[in-house]
Design a protein around this nucleic acid. Sequence first.
DNA 1: CTTATATTTGCCAATATTTGACAAGTCAAT
DNA 2: ATTGACTTGTCAAATATTGGCAAATATAAG
Lengths: 101, 101
Amino acid sequence: MKSQFGERVRTLREKQNLYLRQVAPLLEMDTAQLSKIEKGLRQLKREQIPIIAEILKASSDELMTLWLADQIYDVVKDEKMANEAMQVAEQKLNFIKRKKK
Amino acid sequence: MKSQFGERVRTLREKQNLYLRQVAPLLEMDTAQLSKIEKGLRQLKREQIPIIAEILKASSDELMTLWLADQIYDVVKDEKMANEAMQVAEQKLNFIKRKKK
DNA sequence: CTTATATTTGCCAATATTTGACAAGTCAAT
DNA sequence: ATTGACTTGTCAAATATTGGCAAATATAAG
C-alpha cells in the first residue's frame, strides 16, 4: 500500500476507461508525471484534487482525504512515536476546532 | 498553541536556567534561529532532537512526539477533511505495523 | 519477430521551499 | 543611556521538489 491516493486514482481512471494520455493533459502534465503520481512517487498538487475528482467523476472530499492521509503517513512512517504523535496532533486539532465554534 | 515542540523546549530551557545564547551553539546555530524554533517559526531538524533532549535533560521520545505532532498538524490544519484523513492514516499505520510483526 | 500503444523509469534543468547568517529591532532592568 | 536577552526581517545559499523529455519496459496484434 504505497499511496492510497494514487491507487484510488488509478482505480477510478480505469473504471472510466481512460488512459494516462487522456487524463494527463487535463491536469497540464505529461503521462510520466501522472504515472508517478498514481504510483505514489510524486504528489499531486493540493489544488489539483478537485480537478482530478471532476475528471474521474469522483468525490473531491474522498480524494482529499486520501491525499492528506498520504501526507500524514509520510511524516510518521518508520517513526517509533508515530501513534503518540497522531494522538497529540488529534487532540490539538479538536482543541482548536472547539475554540473556533 | 503554535508549536507544541517549541513551547516545550522553551519551558525546559527555562527550567534549566539556560539562555538561548548558551543552548544555540550546542546545536550549531545562532540565537535567532533557536528563538524562531521555540516560537514555531522554524523547524528543528529531526536528527537534532536527541541532541536538544540531552542538553535540556529531557526525554527524547517526548520531544520527538511533539515534533512529529507539529508536522502532522501542519498538514491537516485548516483542512475540512482533517479528521477523516487522520483516521485513514492511523489505519494504514496499524495495518503496516501488524504486517511487520 | 516487428509494430503499435500504454505505461514506467531515469535523468537533469527549472522552480520552489527551507535554512543560515547577519543586522537591526524590541523589551526590561539598572 | 547601557547592557543583556530575545525577536524580527532580509536575503543569499543550500535543499528539495517538479516538469519535461528520452529511453526502457510491457502487452497485445499481426
